[in-house]
Structure formats: C-alpha cells, structure tokens
Write a protein that binds this DNA or RNA. Structure first.
Lengths: 117, 117
DNA sequence: CTATTACATTGATGGATATGACTGTTATTG
DNA sequence: CAATAACAGTCATATCCATCAATGTAATAG
C-alpha cells in the first residue's frame, strides 16, 4: 500500500488538544523506502555518482585502472567507493587476472528511477 | 560534455609501466554531479524519502503537524529532516499562522530523475 | 624465486550526521 | 496579559563517513 493517506486538510485548533488526529501510518512501503534510500545514499557522493555514470555509459565492464585517473583521489579511496556501490547492490565486479572489471547491475536503479519519475 | 570517454579496453602490461594511459577527465559534468549527488544524499535517508513521498502524493501543501505522527521521531528531529530537504532544494515551506506547510518544489527531482532513466 | 603491478583491506583521523533535550519565537485562545 | 500550541534553532553526544597511509594478496614478468 503506497503512502497515500487522506491527510486532513487545514484544521482549526480548539484548545487543550493537538491540532491533528494522529494519522495511522501504513507500515508498508517501509521496506521499499529502506531499499531506495540505500541506493540514493550510495549515489549521494559526487565521485560515486560519476563512477556510476561512467560505468553506465560503457555497456561492457570497466577496469579499475581506467577509473583511477578520472578522479583526484587515491586508489584505496576509489576502492572504498566501489565497495560502497557494491554493498548497495548497484555495481558488481569480476576479477580477471590482475584486473578487476566493474559494471552496473542491470535494473539496479530501476526502483528508485521509477519512484522519481 | 558528458562523461563518455573512449576508455581503452583490456590491455596488456609491458612491465615497468602502468597498465593504462591516464585518461583525461573532462572537467564538465562536475557541477551536475554535485547537484545530483546533493539531491540523492538528501533522499538517502528512509524518513526523508518517505517525507518526500508523502508530500509528492499530495498536490497541496502539508502541515508539519500531520507529518509528525507518521514517524517514530520527535518533532525537532523531523524539523531537522525537513531542513535538510529544504537545503537540498527539494522542498519549501510556507508559514500560515501557527502552521507551516511543506510542499515539493516542482521539477526539483527532475535532473536526477532524468539521469537515472 | 624475486620484483613489480593491480587491487583490496585495515587503521587512523578529521569532519559530517542523526537524534533528543532544551530553549526560543510566533501566534492563538481565553 | 497569561497560557498554550506549532514549529525552528541550539547544544551535546554518539555514530557514521571520506580520505589517506600503510599493508596484504594474488598474479605476472623476468
């Protein structure tokens, strides 16, 4: 059940009583909000957002060594950001020899995107 | 200029040299990433995301007193979250007597939404 | 085997963040 | 005017976060 309560419109205030009856909050959508907030939080850093932007615009997988020179941060810091994106379920990686290739998980952004539009 | 570099695909590593030529990063899109990350960061909290959800689903303006009972947080904490959303340019408020009415700023989410889809 | 490269992890640190208790401001009731 | 209600701001605290330096791991070159 989406959050679509009939919130009481403007109200008078008798006195000695709160202005609004407490609206019962439908506990549903809670989990969806948690999931979407987790994704949004991961995107809430300019570097991570640009990382996702780069990865999205390259259908294939991108090597970490190609991502490092794009930003003014040290390699461990980039690794840290990539881990955040991985923990949020936005990207995943694949190891091939010495290199690690990252890619955006298909539909990982879909729920948030649908909610925003 | 959007981030759409031709990242060199997989590469060999001669030896004594880094694996990839440093890719020149187009400094543009930086500001856009900053703006979108700011919005995403503000949405990166379940309570704030649900707040925006409630406000969006009510075309009119919603009184703070109607928002408070929806969440298990104290009123000052809710006020803080609303301020975060205000600072991020997502919502605005209007004072009418004792009450403050909040609403989502039209198109405030458009840039992020467009980028996500 | 030794050196080096690519990447991840750990630890430390300064800065931001979420929360609640308290206080302040404004407006309305009586 | 006095009391109260609605909301915002301040302060303190505990937690989280971004960053870097240093280290660890795995693989490849020589």
């Amino acid at each position: 059940m989406p959050i679509d309560l009939e919130l009481a419109p403007k109200q008078r205030r008798p006195n000695g009583s709160p202005c609004c009856e407490p609206v019962v909050y439908p506990d549903v959508q809670r989990e969806q909000a948690l999931r979407m907030a987790e994704v949004a939080k991961a995107l809430g850093d300019p570097i991570r957002l640009q990382l996702v932007d780069v990865l999205r615009k390259h259908a294939g997988k991108v090597c970490v060594c190609e991502l490092v020179p794009l930003f003014d941060i040290a390699q461990p810091t980039l690794s840290h950001h990539l881990k955040k994106l991985r923990d949020a379920g936005i990207v995943d990686s694949e190891r091939q020899g010495l290199w690690a290739y990252y890619y955006v998980i298909p539909n990982a952004l879909e729920e948030l995107s649908a909610w925003l539009s």
